[in-house]
Design a protein around this nucleic acid. Structure first.
Lengths: 340, 340
DNA sequence: CCCCGCCTTCAAAGCGCTTTGGGTATTTTG
DNA sequence: CAAAATACCCAAAGCGCTTTGAAGGCGGGG
């Protein structure tokens, strides 16, 4: 059933039917009712391909997911972020379209999306401190929002959390408890978020006159097994750390394993503060020892980022949107006074 | 730059340019070269909306992700599955489109996709033992592939792993080691995979004359904290389990925590076999105690499922594709003889 | 009574591509 | 050498919708 058939069956023109369905005012209420009823009865759905061509909008937001051969990992926060974004996009009739490409082809993918008009806007994930994608996208003139930030330009839209402040406060917390040798288990520092977190950590140490020791800082793919390995090493030093900060619950879980393996317990012999993205499958809930954490639900970020992008798409010439979310610290059972 | 402009600039018709670009034979090689060069130079990309309308294909495969209010969890295997599927889809020019909807609106979402032609095919995730979506999709006549299986009809396409056999063999392994009280930490059994795994477990016990005790079986959302809680309970019984099987590494990690909390170690006081989907952020690698596991990379499943769906789309009337993948068991350091 | 303006509807022109159904040279065949 | 086949190219007709521009009917103001 297409528009023409529906119109014919009603003895109306396509124009009128189209307008009736799309809520335009220049159609009599009685007529509109008749059209709506008939459309309902025939289960008529406007062909989305035709509609997209006619309107010039594709009603979709794109996500380019790079997969490099080295670290071919899908960011574990991605699914929850998408869930949040997808929810608000669905509400306004937008699709989420993913394109998975090799890291070397990211630029080509963006260029293609821009020139073939398959999406109305883009979301950028995992920005690096110096991220070439941002300048590229600006030159392409497609609305986009970055989840996170990058160093360079000022005039793009982003949604980020206070990574530096959060980690500074978390470090302060540990310092207040008497810890002086504090490990940092972080993601690769070319990721902007990881860089900022380390800066927060360094600033806190600095403010207390505790010397920064780069041997206590580890960066890697943020997996459980990295957490295990790094924690094991840091605990096996002649001068072992008495506390650790980790950039994800996954890392924290690995660290906990290393601690347990020594017969120790988090919050007693060793303290730990982690960042918690509140992933749906990794609840840091009330059972057992919940982690002391800097908390910020990535799903909410996904929702908000989508809202911001919708705004950008709807009113393109209104300057960049930028939001910096504070991060709350929740006390769990993995922090305690330094015993040594 | 659109086709008309490109054609005009070359003093050719749109027809010829279109044919040259799409590799049709009725255009002289010299002309084709000229067109290709000009297209390259102008960075011409055919408008995807127009192309989709003209060809009647949308070059996209859809994924409907239900989010219920109760367990509003995104399946943790989803991201890796998508990465696999996305890779092969990208190779043949297909997009992945996600639509996130409330669980009550899944049917409406599928109907809409079918009648507005926004996708050429669908992938169905997390099938229940009796899953109404399959009959629905069959009636809608849109090609689809199920990741997993459902009980009811025979004539749909799916890709599944040998859940029952895998868990039967894993249980056998534990029985061989002398274990008799074996816990099962599973997903909700209305999921088909969880149901089959439990059957495998039961069959193995049955074959050895070990009575099935439903008190040893726990089902829940497959999170780390579920693993912890369930394992803690099973170990605290007057007749504690001496071994456990878990349906995901996440659960296993939680179980490990409960074991460690008692000062025990996996592979010594308690054995554990888990299913391992080989998630990129949860590598069950060689460091520390790797889990003994039934292994099947969900990313590979995503790739293959996408290939199968492409086949279904390209040749619609060729009967269902069905693949059942065997599951390999890898010995880790979490299994050992029963000590009691 | 005429003209103007409003309400409602319509025919037709896109949107930018693919594809059909010819055409016109140029070769090949008998 | 005429006829038939071939190679190459084009104009125009869709694809199914939205949107523009215009028209018909009708009541109200002058």
């Amino acid at each position: 059933m297409n528009l023409k058939e529906l119109a014919d069956s009603l003895n109306l023109s396509q124009t009128t039917v189209s307008r009736a369905l799309n809520g335009y005012p220049e159609v009599r209420e009685e007529t509109r009712d008749r059209v709506l009823k008939a459309a309902q009865a025939a289960n008529y759905q406007p062909n989305s391909r035709a509609r997209r061509l006619a309107t010039g909008r594709s009603m979709a937001v794109g996500h380019v997911i790079p997969l490099s051969d080295q670290h071919q990992m899908v960011n574990p926060i991605f699914a929850d972020f998408l869930a949040g974004a997808g929810e608000v996009c669905a509400r306004v009739g937008y699709d989420l379209v993913l394109s998975v490409v090799a890291e070397t082809e990211v630029e080509a993918a963006y260029r293609k999306m821009a020139s073939n008009g398959s999406v109305d806007g883009l979301m950028v994930h995992g920005p690096r401190t110096e991220d070439p994608r941002i300048a590229l996208l600006q030159s392409l003139g497609l609305p986009f929002i970055v989840h996170g930030r990058s160093a360079a330009p000022e005039s793009y839209s982003w949604l980020d959390i206070e990574n530096r402040t959060a980690f500074r406060q978390a470090t302060d917390l540990l310092l207040d408890l008497g810890h002086r040798r504090i490990g940092l288990l972080n993601g690769f520092t070319d990721f902007d978020f990881a860089h900022r977190r380390q800066r927060g950590y360094e600033q806190a140490l600095d403010a207390r006159g505790v010397a920064f020791d780069e041997a206590l800082v580890r960066t890697d793919e943020m997996t459980e097994s990295f957490g295990y390995r790094a924690a094991k090493e840091l605990l096996a030093r002649e001068n072992p750390v008495t506390a650790m900060m980790t950039s994800s619950v996954l890392i924290a879980v690995g660290a906990r394993r290393a601690v347990a393996e020594r017969g120790w317990q988090l919050g007693r012999e060793v303290s730990l503060v982690t960042h918690d993205d509140v992933l749906s499958y990794l609840p840091n809930a009330g059972d057992g020892p919940a982690f002391t954490a800097t908390r910020s639900p990535v799903r909410a970020a996904g929702s908000r980022a989508a809202e911001m992008l919708m705004e950008l798409i709807d009113s393109p010439n209104t300057g960049p949107r930028q939001e910096l979310w504070p991060v709350e610290i929740t006390l769990g059972r993995t922090t305690g006074p330094c015993l040594t």
